Structures are given as C-alpha cells and as structure tokens.
Computed example of a mutant assay.
Amino acid sequence: MTTVRPDERPEVLRRATAKEMRIAIGCTPTPVEQTEAWQAFEASQGRSLFGRYVYELEGRPVAAIALYRYEAAGQPYVWAKHGPVWLKEQSPEREAHLRSLLRQEVRSREPRVVFIRMHARYRARDTRELLSTIAYDRTYVIDLRPRDPDRIAEIMPKDGRRAVRRAQRVAEGAGCVIAEETGLDRQAFEEVYEVMVATAVRDGFRPHPCQVYWDMLQSLGPSHARLFVLRRDGVPHAWDLVTVVGRHAVAYYGASSDESRTFRGAEALDWFVARTLAAEGCEGLDLMGADSARVPELYSVGQYKKRYARHATEVDGAWDVPVHRLLYSAMVRARRARWALRRRLGV
C-alpha cells in the first residue's frame, strides 16, 4: 500500500478553467465525462461543477481532472467520472499524492463533503470499495482502425466474426432497418425508451427515467451523443446511445426487446454502429464494461462483449476516497444495515 504526504513530492495541484484543462490535455484521448461538454449534462441533472484541476510538475501538466457535486444518503460528495486523465507517468506514488492534494482542496473549499469518488489504477490505503453503484476496471473495445468491415471482422475472435456476419444476415432477412436517429423528437424518443423499460424488466435492473437519456442527447449535442435504432415494421426493438470524443466512441447505453433476440437485433445493431463509426474515422468502439475479479457482477455482459475483441482492455477502476473517515464509515455501516434488513424482509 502506498502512503504519500503532500509535501514529499514536487507536483502541485492548480485550479484550472475549462480552456486551461483542455489545453493541458491536448490530444490525449479523454473520456466524455472529463470534457467541457459534460458540464451541460450534469447541470441538466441538477449537479454543479466542483472544479477543474491540473496536476503539474514545474508548470508541465501530469494529469487533469474535473469533479462534480453529488449526494448519497443526504451527504455531499464529489465525483470525477473516469478521471483523472493522466498525461505523464501514472505511478502509485503520483496517484496517492494527487488524492492527498484533492482531499486538502475539498476540506478547504467545502468542509461538508464526505468523500471523493475518482478512478485509480492502484489500490491504496486511502481507497475504498464504492459505497454505491457498480463501476468496472476491464472493458472490450472493437478495433475500428482497419476501416473496412471485412477487415474489422477478421481481427475479431472467430465466434465474434461469425456472430456479426450472421446477425447482419438474419436481421436483414427479418426486414429490420437500422439507422442513426440522433435528431428524433421527444415523442419519438419516448417510444424508443420503452425498449429500455423492457430490457430492465428482463435483466433485473432499474432504468433511469426517460428524461435522463433525453437530457444526455440534448445537452451533449450530436457531436458528442448519437442515437442508433433498429426497427422492424417501424417498431423500435434495439437502440444504442453512443458518445464520441475525437476518434474514440463509447456504447454508453443500450437496450433491446425480447423479440429482437429472435432476429439477433442487438448484435446487428452493434455491428452497424461499429461499421458506421469506422467509416467516419473512429479508431475504437468501447463496449463499456466487463467482468473482472473485482466486478464479477458484469460476467454475463462480459461474455457477450468478449466476442468482439481478442483481449480485454484494462481501465482505471473507481474508488471512494474518504475525506471524513468516521462519517464515511458510518455511511458504510448504515448501508450494510439497510441491505441486511431488506434481505430479512425479502425485499
């Protein structure tokens, strides 16, 4: 485990404007949640920017991070989704040092904040498993660099290559039509959203309200958020909400009807999205999350996604970093007690 005192390293943390953070990051691939565009979506959900920061050494940026204000069980915390963005060597010592500087900043600016949620490659003494939600530290990325669909399929594992070609053939034979529908109106989107409701019932999770997905499309705009829909006889059966930053795309949300399984709708849609983005110059389509030793809950989705890439891509997992340790520990105990009560009641 790594412990670093703030005064033991030469790097410093500097608050930055959106422009300064953008300049610091430059051409480094950046998650959409760490871009300037994401602020509009957070604002649409009633969450404000805590701050943007550049972690630097002798005036040269080492990492950059944007954090937003959230609440859990009535207690405030700040979250840097998929941040920080590392620009130089990402060592355990640097990660720990950056966290210590952020804790100091949070205590100074907003003493009521209980913890920071952020991403890190290395487990450390000051990191904790997430109080709530599921994150991931492995994903699968479809390599789009060959551009040509046949060449993209050829570099997939054999079962993935067969799956996408079969799905395209079966979906076309069933009369399915797949198209980008990013500019659809709210009424049309509500019909599309019902596919997510059906997916949630089938797979046992609670979807966001329709407004959340709509706000994401509207606030990020067509340059960063795109909607692809598979329809049969005009009825939506599968959809993907894809975020795009530069040459990198992420299948952020997706849904499929029970009926779509009979004509391989989800596979056909994902393959259409991959082909479309490749033709536009994207280099990869991140399928956003798979199982790992830390996150076995994602095993089923991981089995689906692993067919499309020869190897998993390791990413920094999310951790809670307590600012007020006693209060954070009390929140953990309260959550465990609630879950224990629900199990006893069978809820």
Rank of each mutant, 00 (worst) to 15 (best):
R344E: 13
A73P: 00
L230E: 04
V12R: 12
P149H: 09
H311T: 12
A198L: 09
A135R: 12
V32Y: 04
D286N: 13
Y53A: 01
E172M: 09
P6W: 08
R52G: 11
L49I: 11
A37C: 00
G183L: 08
V12I: 13
V85R: 05
D150S: 13
P146S: 06
L102E: 05
A293Y: 01
R166G: 00
R151D: 14
W319D: 00
P149I: 09
A290Y: 04
G160D: 06
G26S: 09
A64F: 04
L184P: 04
R206S: 11
R261D: 04
S44W: 02
E110W: 14
A96D: 05
L217R: 03
E314A: 14
G221L: 06
A293V: 10
Y53R: 02
Q90H: 10
T262W: 12
R99C: 10
H324R: 15
S260D: 08
G59D: 09
R335F: 03
R15C: 01
E280W: 10
F50A: 02
A188I: 01
C282W: 07
P222D: 07
H119R: 13
H224P: 00
A174T: 05
Y304S: 02
A80Q: 06
R165Q: 13
L184Q: 07
D233A: 15
L269T: 07
Y122K: 02
E11I: 03
R226I: 06
R165C: 03
E20G: 04
P222T: 08
A43S: 11
D150W: 08
A66N: 03
Y122E: 05
K81F: 12
L298I: 10
S260C: 09
E20W: 08
E11P: 03
A334G: 13
R165Y: 05
D143V: 09
R99Q: 12
R186S: 07
A18P: 06
P236D: 12
V315Q: 11
A334N: 10
G183S: 13
V321C: 10
A200T: 06
L341V: 15
S132Q: 12
V177E: 15
Y328V: 03
C27K: 14
G173Q: 11
A24Y: 05
C282D: 04
R202H: 07
E20M: 05
Y77D: 01
T313I: 05
V332E: 14
T276I: 00
F115T: 03
Y213D: 01
E267T: 15
F50Y: 13
T133M: 12
T3Y: 09
S256T: 15
A37H: 10
G26A: 03
R165K: 15
A167T: 06
T35N: 03
R264F: 14
E267K: 06
A340W: 11
G183M: 04
A293E: 15
G46K: 08
F50T: 02
V195W: 10
L287S: 06
A66Y: 02
K88Q: 15
A167D: 07
R60K: 14
V32K: 02
